[in-house]
Amino acid sequence: MMYDTILVPTDGSKGANAAARHGLRLAEAFDSQVRFLSVVDDRTYSSGLAGIDSEANDQREALERQATDALQVLEELGDETPTTYQTAVEHGVPHEMILSYADEHDVDLISMGTHGRTGLDRYLLGSVAERVVRTSDVPVLTSQSEPEESSGYDRILIPTDGSDTATAAVDHGLAIAEQYDATVHVLSVVDLSAVVGSYDVAPMIESWKERCERTVEGVAEESENRGLDVVTDVVEGTPYRAIQQYIESEEIDLVSMGTHGRTGLGRYLIGSVTARTVRTSEIPVLTV
Rank of each mutant, 00 (worst) to 15 (best):
V8Q: 09
I110C: 01
D11H: 04
T183W: 00
A19E: 09
Y240K: 11
Y3M: 11
T10I: 07
M2E: 11
A202G: 01
Y3I: 09
V138Y: 05
T81Y: 11
I176C: 09
T277F: 06
F30C: 06
V196L: 12
A194F: 04
A175M: 10
D79W: 00
V184L: 11
L71F: 08
W208T: 14
I252S: 11
G237F: 07
E75D: 13
I6K: 10
S281C: 08
A102T: 05
L269F: 12
T83Q: 13
E64Y: 10
R122L: 02
A18P: 05
S111V: 13
E250H: 15
Q66T: 13
L192P: 00
T277N: 05
P94N: 09
L99T: 02
G162T: 08
V255F: 06
T183K: 05
E75F: 01
D108R: 05
R267L: 06
V219L: 07
V230S: 06
Y153I: 10
V186I: 14
L174Y: 05
I283W: 08
I243G: 04
L63N: 01
S54D: 12
G116T: 07
E251A: 15
D253N: 13
M257L: 15
G261A: 10
Y101S: 01
W208K: 01
N57M: 07
S193N: 12
G126T: 14
G119Y: 11
V201A: 12
R241W: 02
Q244L: 08
E221R: 13
A88T: 10
G261V: 11
Q86D: 15
R155F: 00
Y180D: 12
F30G: 12
T259V: 11
G258Q: 11
Y180G: 03
L125R: 13
G113R: 05
V133E: 02
V234F: 03
P203S: 06
E224C: 01
E80V: 07
G266N: 10
H95Q: 14
A175I: 02
D191M: 03
L71M: 12
V189P: 12
G126K: 04
T238V: 15
D42L: 07
V201K: 08
V184Y: 04
T232N: 09
H115N: 14
Q86R: 13
Y3L: 08
P159F: 10
D137K: 14
V231P: 00
S100Y: 02
H91C: 01
P139I: 08
I247H: 03
L120N: 03
T274V: 09
D171T: 11
G12Q: 02
I270A: 11
A182Q: 06
V190E: 13
R214H: 09
L254V: 02
V170K: 11
R21H: 04
M2I: 08
E90V: 08
A275G: 15
V189R: 09
M204I: 15
S100P: 00
